[in-house]
């Protein structure tokens, strides 16, 4: 009969078959229960003690100083922050240390970037916050817990005196605001290197001014368009070419005019470059002519 172990909870996606302990959803008593019974039977006999425990227990939160805090100004998305070993769990990479004369403790930060420390005795404490991923505006506070259990926080930048004017009473309603001013850059910025290189080049003035850049780009496109058109749409290019007969005609004419009288004069540029040592050239007359003219 006891083999049936119905599972009591709603919205579950997984059934676990456990071999270690079936507590909570089994009917078998919890291993601790037997111990509890004896302890509780003692307690039941002393009702006053019980109510005292409850009272003390519930009051323990209300009395004594407490620090409430939250992070503000966090980046909207995780953009710009390199995920670390814990993925995007930046909360786990925040170390908050509350140090006092009697005790010091590490305070965890929850998913909403809130933290709190309760049950502080009157006295002075230092709250130091270090986030692995975020730059904070201020990372140290002096916490003053008065005898009336009022808690005040005073900004205390490293190596500087207390910023007394920043003293503020903190409570659950008005928590201490830890301002995030940016994300920590652990890598030197490699992005933007190309644009920086362009801007530092002799033609940098073009790229520094928006108007010049626009003009430059327009010119570049105008120059490149005929060539691009030849590949993209040769027919259109042909049409455009045909629509510009005078220019074409002139060029043709020039070529004709130039090439007719002296067809053998094409080599001079090569020859003049290579110099007189190249005696095997077919027209030694021409360089002589050129050099003569230059002289």
């Amino acid at each position: 009969m006891s083999e049936l172990k119905p599972y009591n909870n709603t919205d579950t996606c997984t059934i676990e078959k456990k071999f270690r302990d079936g507590a909570f959803y089994t009917r078998e008593p919890h291993p601790h229960t037997t111990l509890l019974v004896s302890r509780n039977s003692l307690r039941e006999s002393t009702d006053s003690m019980l109510s005292f425990t409850v009272l003390l227990y519930l009051l323990s939160v209300a009395v004594a100083g407490s620090v409430y805090g939250r992070f503000t100004g966090l980046p909207e998305t995780s953009r710009g922050i390199a995920p670390g070993r814990n993925g995007l769990n930046f909360q786990s990479r925040i170390l908050i240390q509350l140090e006092g004369s009697t005790k010091s403790e590490a305070i965890p930060v929850d998913k909403k970037f809130k933290f709190r420390a309760l049950g502080l005795d009157p006295g002075l404490y230092q709250l130091s916050i270090d986030s692995y991923d975020f730059e904070l505006k201020n990372s140290k506070w002096q916490i003053e817990v008065s005898n009336e259990d009022e808690t005040a926080a005073v900004e205390h930048a490293t190596g500087k005196p207390l910023n007394v004017t920043s003293r503020a009473i903190i409570s659950a309603e008005n928590p201490l605001e830890v301002k995030v001013v940016g994300t920590t850059q652990y890598y030197e910025d490699l992005e933007g290197g190309l644009s920086k290189m362009l801007q530092d080049s002799p033609f940098g003035f073009i790229f520094r001014n928006r108007t010049y850049t626009t003009i430059f780009v327009v010119c570049l496109i105008t120059m490149a368009l005929p060539y691009v058109l030849l590949f993209v749409n040769p027919e259109l290019a042909e049409q455009i070419n045909q629509k510009q007969p005078p220019a074409k005609y002139v060029v043709k004419e020039e070529v004709e005019v130039l090439s007719k009288p002296q067809p053998q004069q094409r080599p001079p540029s090569q020859v003049s470059q290579r110099g007189a040592s190249q005696s095997s050239l077919p027209a030694p007359r021409v360089p002589a002519q050129g050099s003569k003219r230059r002289a």
């Binding site: 993925g87 769990n89 909360q91 786990s92 965890p108 930060v109 929850d110 998913k111 309760l118």
Partner: peptide, 10 residues
């Protein structure tokens, strides 16, 4: 994510 949702001390 491994984020802390609630922390109850004592």
């Amino acid at each position: 994510t491994g984020s802390l949702i609630q922390h109850h001390k004592n």
